[in-house]
Design a protein around this nucleic acid. Sequence first.
DNA 1: AACACGGGGGC
DNA 2: GCCCCAGTGTT
Length: 396
Amino acid sequence: MNKQQIKFNEEIEQYTKTWTPAKVAAFRSAFLTWYDEEKRLLPWRVNQEPYSVWVSEIMLQQTQVATVIPYYQRFMEWFPTVQDLAEAPEDKLLKAWEGLGYYSRVRNMQVAAKQVVSEFGGQFPTTSEGLKQLKGIGPYTAGAIASISFKEPAPAVDGNVMRVFSRLFGIGEDIAKPSTLKYFDAVVRHVIDPIRPGDMNQATMDLGSSICTPTKPKCEACPLQSFCLTYQQGTQENYPVKLKKIKVTHKYYLALAKENNQGQFEMIQRPSEGLLANLWTFPLIEVSKEDYERYHQEWQGTAEGVLASETDSLLKTLQREYPEAVWQKQPVGEITHVFSHLKWHVLIAYGRKNQSLIAEETDKHVWITPETFKELAVPKPQEKMNQLLKKANYIN
DNA sequence: AACACGGGGGC
DNA sequence: GCCCCAGTGTT
C-alpha cells in the first residue's frame, strides 16, 4: 500500500470512526423504515428487472421524474424486452426519445441491448463490473442496476447521493472534481445495507430529491437527523462543497527590460484601477497567442520553415517598434504567473540604450537601477523577472 | 483533464 | 435570456 492509499484510508476513517456497528445498524433501520413508508410508487419500481431499472435510470440521468414517467411507459410498450430494443428500427428508437435530448444515449442503449443479446445470451450481466462493459453504463448506472436487481452492495453515486452523504458525514471534498467520487464510494460502502442495497440506494435518491434538497433542506422532516453530522453542527447548508471552476484566461506579453548607459531600467506604473493597481513592472506589450508561440519557438530554436517575409521575428518586431534600444537577439527567458482567473505568459526581451534620457521620466515612468527596485511596489511576476535577470547575470 | 451532449428549470 | 444541471463517451 502506498502513501496515497494510506492517506486515503485515514481520511475515510475520520469520516466513519464514530460509525460503530450499532450505529450503522440503527442508521440502516431508520433509513429503510422511512423508505418503506415514503417511497414513491413509480412505474419502474413495480419490478426489479434489470431492463426496467436500466431504462429508467438512463432517462432519469437527464430528465426529472415527472417528465420521465410518460416516456418510460411508452418506451416499455414499444420495446418490452431487451430483444425488442436490440431489433428496433432507428427511426422508432429516436421517436421514442424525441424531446428527451442526449440522443446518443438511446443509440448507446441499443448498442448495449445488442451486446446483451449476442454476448450475454439475452441476460444482463449480474454484477456491476459486468454491467459496466455495456455501452452507456458507467459506475453510477452499473451500481444502480446491480444493487436493485441483483442485491449487490454496490454504491450508485450521483449528485443527489453526494449531497446527502456530504451532509451526513461532513465530507468537504470538492464534488466538482471527478476524483472526489472515491470518498463517497468508500463511505457508502461502509453503511450500505447488505440485505437491501438497492432500497438503500433508492432511499438515498428519494431523500436527496424530497428532503435533503440543494437549498433549504427540510431537516426537521428528515429521518436521518440524529445521524447527520452537519445538521448537528448547523452547517448542512455549507455542503456539498462545489468549487466554481473558474475558467483561466491566458494572456501573452513581451516584457521589455531596457537598460540605459547608467545601468538603469525602465519601469512603468500600472493604472490605478484593476489588476495589480499602481504596482510597477517593466513595460509589458501584449501579443497574440500565435505571435507569442512563434517567438517562443524561435527562441527555443524549433521553428522550422518560417519565412522572414511571412512572419516577423521577435528581434525584427522589437527593432521596428522600439528602435531606441539595441535588442538582444534572444529573450532572456520566460516566466509564467497564475492569478485566480488568468495566467500570464511573459517573454523577457533585453535591450540596451546608449543614452540615459532622464528627461523621459514622468510620475508613471521611471528609470532606476536594480538596487532600487525594492523601493517600488512590485508584483510577483516582476519579481520572477528580476530573479531571471539576476540568474542570467544581467543584473547583480 | 476538458469537452460534448440537449433539453428544462431557476434566476 | 443566460447559466447551470449530471452522467457517459471521446479525445
